[in-house]
Write a protein that binds this DNA or RNA. Structure first.
Lengths: 296, 296
DNA sequence: ATGACCTGATCGAAATTTGTCATGTGCCGA
DNA sequence: TCGGCACATGACAAATTTCGATCAGGTCAT
């Protein structure tokens, strides 16, 4: 009965495909989706059989997807977007209100952007005001009640029970391949800002240990730090996504940095039904995909 | 395991939903889809259960769909459109060429329009030139090789083996509720045009029988005929889709008109790979939905 | 080279989903 | 009130999907 003619795509299969790309591999995707590895492998296999064409290239070194696969992914993304929006629209209860939301630079180009865009479309009566600041600043604004909620970075061990975990990421000391960390004397440190909590951690640790860090560069955007590292100005604390092939991770001489977590943290303010909905949509997305992905 | 939370739509279910609307009922949809009535009923039921909301209203008199159902249909249409396009794009082989296509007025606002639009998108290298004419004119153009193919109306008994049947439709004599068909003397006839084959049939039949038709109104567009009928100018031959509640179907005194068929008819010209592809896509659509639907 | 190790493919068995047949129910027109 | 029609429902069979276990192929550090 599985005629070649009877070709159809299933939402599930497309979602799997999408997860495979975004998590980079079948095994990882299966974990995120809460399925066994073989189930995911089978699903893709079936998809390939029913379409009578290869989707994953299985060639080491090459891109994981074939041209047809990339093509299909493109459609998958659009179809899934519509699908999820359709689901949400069914449960929508005309909400109105105002949300003041904080974001970090890093989260502006993740799935969050997609979710926010969809939220606006589904709930035009809600005005969403967004501010992009550094995590420490956002936390302070939350405390002062200037924001209803914010997506901030915190150290993994600082996640509160009320936080909603979006994803984790590793933090690394990095340097240029040519740059040599001085055995003695101060280590040149490239820092985001006064308000960067990486830096706070680094300086604290340095004091405890027998390490001297000298902040030789400050820039509040990641692009600047990346450039400074590549130029060999010193060492910096960067999260995984900013690593470049020409950067080297420093493991000796410097203390191991803690893991990072991206969380949605709400202010302690009174009820905000619009925010409740937005947060619910985010949680929904997380449970569906087993966390959000960094790459948009 | 079938949690309420695990909400997802399946392409199949959406397609069923769509068929239910376009064929006007579960039983009809099941025939078109080649499934049993209970299968369709079950599918919709499952969809409702998994979404935890009603989709069909089941109230006699009211619209078949609930508000949520209408909402969902809207998304279904978009999702299915993307889905089908994705499938086609996987098999596409960059084709180029030129197609000269004829359409009747009636087919411009059916699924054909959607298919043509998609075809243009998928094959930008193919130039599609479309002419809208009356069926008889199109047939003549086909004969003369001025068109590569045309979607024309023919009487059901005139369908050729090489034609691709899109859908059938009934033809009726209609009049205004107030208008009385004269027992004797000529019957005032509202005709499309000289080139209208309804009219040719009517006049032929009239000659054979003992009936006199007098063409009192001519207009090449359906809207004009409809208006003339409503104004009580006479009787006309109209296909089902143009019937209006205030029109009366005349069954006595006039001969029963034959059924109509809409077909794709190709010219006898040489190979045209672009046209082959377009025709294949149309056939594909037909087999998937069990014929095309009239309403866009 | 070798062995630990990771990723994905494959197989049989179990669980779940989906479709069919047979039958029940409610509504409408004669 | 009786068929007839359109849909709902239940039981069951068929198909699909998933899982656990195992296997094959590759990478990497020694």
């Amino acid at each position: 009965m599985s005629e070649l003619n009877n070709r159809r795509l299933e939402i599930d299969a497309l979602r799997v495909l999408w997860a495979v790309r975004n998590h980079g591999g079948i095994t990882r995707a299966s974990e995120a989706l809460g399925l066994s590895q073989s189930a995911v492998s089978h699903k893709i296999k079936r998809l390939e059989t029913s379409l009578d064409c290869d989707i994953l290239s299985r060639k080491p070194g090459a891109s994981m997807f074939t041209a047809a696969g990339e093509d299909l992914l493109d459609y998958a993304e659009r179809i899934l977007g519509l699908h999820d929006e359709a689901l949400l629209s069914l449960t929508k209860t005309a909400i109105a209100g105002r949300i003041s939301l904080g974001l970090t630079e890093d989260t502006t180009c993740t799935d969050l952007a997609r979710i926010l865009g969809r939220f606006r479309r589904l709930h035009p009566q809600v005005s969403v005001r967004t501010k992009v600041r550094m995590s420490l600043v956002l936390r302070a604004m939350l405390e002062r009640g200037e924001l209803d909620a914010a997506i901030v970075q915190v150290f993994a061990h600082e996640v509160r029970p009320t936080d909603i975990l979006l994803f984790r990421e590793k933090l690394h000391w990095v340097r240029n391949g040519d740059f040599v960390v001085p055995q003695e004397g101060p280590v040149p440190f490239l820092s985001f800002d006064d308000a960067c909590f990486y830096r706070t951690w680094a300086l604290d640790i340095a004091q405890d240990g027998d390490l001297l860090l000298e902040t030789v560069f400050e820039c509040s955007s990641a692009a600047g730090i990346v450039a400074a590292v590549i130029s060999g100005l010193g060492v910096a604390l960067l999260n995984e996504r900013h690593l470049r092939p020409d950067m080297v991770i420093v493991t000796r001489q410097l203390p191991v940095p803690p893991d990072l977590a991206y969380v949605v943290r709400r202010s302690r303010k009174v009820r905000n039904p619009a925010l409740d909905t937005l947060v619910a949509e985010i949680e929904n997305e997380i449970s569906r995909y087993g966390g959000l992905t960094l790459a948009s």
